[in-house]
Design a protein around this nucleic acid. Structure first.
Length: 282
DNA sequence: GCCCAGGGATGCG
DNA sequence: CGCATCCATGGG
């Protein structure tokens, strides 16, 4: 057990298991703020405030059970770290991002977030998502919830354009019109191949976005989202393993990292994106 | 003005 | 199939 709950606060003392800065800044989530060292995280209609003082992390929320699952706190990462460290290539990335964890986010919120992420930058993705919440989500205390599917389906293409989605506005609109509570429930019962096939059949979702949704919104391990950064990492470090395109890079990387693919990808994305100038030339 | 950002859809051979 | 091209938009 890496946490305890005292006086309605989750307490974590092992920073090698949980570093809120790395968890939030590694690109898996967009709805968060860090001000004066205090992090605020939003997921669906929930909010958590995360403070770290004297090496002790406190998570404060009105729904602790939700955030125990969200932060995957019943999963001890010690063993995973030991296995990941065996990959020499990952060592620097793991040292840099020690305490990074894969969040267990909502499926629909992940779908919307990563459809918007395509060929976009993180700042603009963040602004768009907050805008959508402010205008379609219910107000809760001092913030806005992620909208319900019903609310999202009422939004027009024009609304999403104003939200800054660019050409992704009509893609998101089209996908939302295809969704309902039934198909999201059916998704849970599908096997991996069916899930991937269904996701890619939707507008605005290709292989990379599908991998992000499966990794962050469905806790899948055998995925390796290859975006522009991972492509650079590949060209700089795996040039000897020939790959014509991102599809082949993904296949090769999953073959190398196996069940640790999703997490390895996240460490690499974070490390190389944060340090790109000195590490990547191609 | 150019290039880039957590790529995907489309059309052409 | 593989591949080239287009797609909005803000920032560097």
């Amino acid at each position: 057990m890496i946490y305890k709950i005292e006086k309605n606060v989750i307490i974590i003392t092992d920073k090698s298991q949980f570093d809120i800065n790395h968890i939030l800044k590694c690109g898996q989530i967009f709805r968060y703020k860090i001000e004066d060292g205090i992090a605020t995280v939003f997921s669906l209609d929930k909010k958590a405030v995360v403070k770290t003082e004297n090496g002790q992390t406190k998570i404060i929320s009105s729904d602790l059970e939700y955030f125990v699952n969200f932060f995957d706190l019943n999963n001890n990462y010690t063993n995973v770290y030991n296995e990941l460290t065996k990959f020499e290539f990952l060592k620097e990335s793991i040292i840099f991002g020690k305490g990074l964890r894969i969040l267990k986010q909502d499926l629909l919120e992940s779908m919307v977030s990563f459809i918007i992420s395509a060929n976009n930058n993180i700042k603009r993705i963040t602004n768009s998502l907050f805008y959508i919440c402010e205008h379609l989500g219910q107000k809760v205390d001092d913030y806005y919830a992620f909208p319900t599917l019903k609310a999202l389906k009422t939004a027009s293409i024009e609304f999403f354009t104003i939200a800054g989605l660019g050409y992704r506005a009509k893609q998101l609109y089209a996908t939302l019109q295809k969704l309902d509570a039934n198909c999201l429930n059916d998704f849970i019962k599908m096997d991996f191949a069916q899930k991937q096939k269904w996701l890619i059949s939707l507008s605005g979702i290709g292989e990379k976005v599908s991998d992000c949704i499966l990794l962050f919104g469905d806790n899948q391990k055998y995925v390796f989202p290859v975006d522009t950064w991972i492509e650079k990492v590949y060209k700089n470090n795996f040039a000897q393993i020939s790959a014509k395109n991102r599809f082949e890079m993904r296949k090769n990387l999953i073959k190398i990292f196996g069940e640790y693919s999703g997490l390895a990808q996240q460490f690499l994305f974070y490390y190389y994106r944060e340090n790109n100038k000195k590490l990547l030339s191609k």
